[in-house]
Each structure stands twice: as structure tokens, then as C-alpha cells.
Amino acid sequence: MSARLVEIIIPDADILHAKSIIREHCSRFWQEPVPDGLEKFSCVVPSRTIEPLIAQLAGNFKDTEGFSVLVLQVEAVLPEIPELEAIVPPLSGESKPPSKLELFFTRDRISTNELYDDIEASLDLRPNYLLTVVLSALIAALGMRSGQTAVVIGAMIIAPLLGPTMGMAMAATLGDSKLGRRAAITLSVGILAALISTLLLGMLIEIDPLVSELRNRTIVHPADIALALACGAAGVLAFSQGASLALVGVMIAVALVPPIAAAGLYFGSGDQMLGFKALFLLATNLVCINVAGIIMFLAQGLPPRNWRITSGVFLIWLIMLVLFISLVGGRFVLGDG
């Protein structure tokens, strides 16, 4: 079951109007008075209908003094509520069950507000963010240097770059330029911090540039592009359904942290060419994640605020992806792979 408990605070004068809106979206709700001339409605709502409920409430009461909405996760409901298993709650006595095809195409994601809440906290440039980025990169670098895949995977679990990466794809989908700028700045600072820390590490230790864990981060295969696209799509799909951030972070970090760490080690050891090749893999993966992320957010029904901005940003990412694919394909055709 995927449901939310929505608590709505409304002035007494708007009780009837609010109740009519609530009844359109859920069949079970409670009403109780609260101090200062306000009324509280507690509603059990399917997560797939949270978005239209909040939008309708905000459209009617956002400028009303005392109005507020709180959304909470629900673990279980007894007795069962019929609309939690349906695509939409029955309206005006309509009880026609959804078809199998409708059920198949149902998009059961968390609301845009919840997505914002999950991302916002990870976009702040704080010491903890920079420290986890540096530690993740150093762990990945040391794991690749010694060829220990398990250590590299351990670095992925820290996943400090998850928030800004998801933030960029979400901002492009929504057409939210402010969110996009914050995410881009946070991601850029994180990448720079990881690159500098691993560069210093590369100056202090000896590395074998032919170790497979490192060498593999200097060659972009067509399979690497497919992997990055799959990571971006799977990450957004899991993220939009409220999955564990650690799980989503591994999907994204596997495409970003190792190339950064490899580039830093190579630059630190004086091998500039291999360092730039690792950065090329990083850039390719970042473009792939954003292209796949935007497509998956749209497929999940995330509503763009400005289609002009969304389509423009997506077109830029897509052109970059085509360019990178052409470069990779051309290199393999010429036998330089």
C-alpha cells in the first residue's frame, strides 16, 4: 500500500469549501477543531493523488491566513480503503473499477513537494557535504589503486553527489532555474573538492596506471554510455517512488565518483592524458544521467512549469549526448578504443 496522511489546517469560514475538495480525493477523513478559529482535516490519501489534492488546496487557499498542509507517510490502514488499490478514488458514486491496462500504466510516485523536500537538504554547501565528498573520493581512489572492487562499492554507499545530480535533472524537468543553479553549483563544488583531494593523494602515493580498476575509468565504451543511461533512469525511478536514498545513491555514484577519483590520481601522478580521459568519462556519465533522468521524471508524470525551459534544457543535454556518442563511436571505428 502506498498512502499518505494529509493534515490540512483551514479557517472555520472555509470548512465547507475545503470539505468539498477533500471529498473529491479521499473517502476517509477526520475533522476536529483547533485553537485560533481553525479546523483540522486528517485525510488518508493514495500517494498517486497527493499532487492534485495539494495543487487544488493551494490554488484555493494559499493566500488564506492560517492555511497549512502536512504530509506524513502511512505504514498501514485498517480497515482497508478501496481507493488505495484503485487508480483514482470513486467520485459522485462512480464505482467502475480500473482496467488492467490502466493499472499497468499507473504512475505511483511521491508528490513533487516530497521530491523537493528530499532534494533541498542535500543542496546546501556545508562542511559535512564537502567532507563526505572528499572521503567518498579518497575511499574510491584507494580501492581502485589496490584493485579492491568491494572498497570501491563501499565508497558508492556514501553517495554525497546524489542530491545535486537528482536536483539538476528535476530542475530541468520542472523548468525551475533557481533549483537548477543551486544543484549545479553544489555539484560543481563537490566534483572540484573530490578532484583536488584525490590529486593530492596521487602526489603522495605511487599508482600503477595499468591496474584494471583505474584503467577502465579512462576508456569510454558504448556499454559505459548504456550503463550511465540505465543508472540515471533507475535512480530517478527509485527516487520518485521514495526508495532508500542509499540505494538510489549507489546507482548514481557508480557513474560519477570512480571517474573523478581516477582523474585526480592520474593528475597527481603526472599522467595528464589519462586524467583527461577519466574526466571525459565523467562528463559522458553526467550527460547520460541527466538525459535519462529528465525522460524518467517526465514518464513519472512530473509536471513542467515551463515547457519552453524544459524542452530547451533537454535539447542541450541531448545534443551533448549525441556529440559524445559520435566521439566514442568514431574512436572505435578508427580503432583507437
Results as ranks from 00 to 15, higher is better:
Glu102Leu: 12
Leu103Asp: 03
Ser122Ala: 13
Pro98His: 05
Asp63Trp: 09
Glu102Gly: 11
Val74Asp: 08
Asp117Pro: 08
Ser92Asp: 09
Arg109Ile: 11
Pro82Asp: 01
Phe105Pro: 01
Lys62Ser: 13
Ala76Met: 12
Gln73Arg: 12
Ser95Leu: 14
Val77Arg: 09
Ile110Asp: 08
Ile119Val: 14
Glu114Met: 06
Ile81Thr: 02
Glu83Phe: 03
Lys62Leu: 10
Glu80Ser: 15
Leu78Ser: 09
Glu94Ala: 07
Val74His: 07
Val69Phe: 02
Ala86Val: 00
Ala121Gln: 13
Glu75Met: 10
Ser99Gly: 14
Glu65Ile: 09
Glu83Ala: 06
Asp117Leu: 15
Gly66Thr: 00
Leu84Phe: 06
Gly66Leu: 04
Ser95Tyr: 05
Ile110Leu: 04
Ser99His: 04
Val74Asn: 02
Glu102Tyr: 03
Glu102Thr: 05
Val88Gln: 06
Val88Lys: 05
Asp117Thr: 15
Pro82Ala: 01
Glu85Asp: 14
Ile87Lys: 13
Val74Leu: 12
Arg107Met: 11
Glu114Gly: 00
Glu83Pro: 05
Lys96Asp: 09
Leu115Glu: 06
Lys96Gln: 06
Glu80His: 14
Val71Asp: 05
Leu72Pro: 04
Leu101Arg: 13
Pro79Asn: 05
Glu102Asn: 10
Pro82Ile: 00
Lys100Asn: 11
Glu85Cys: 07
Arg109Asp: 07
Leu72Lys: 11
Pro90Asp: 06
Leu103Phe: 01
Ile119Asn: 05
Leu70Met: 14
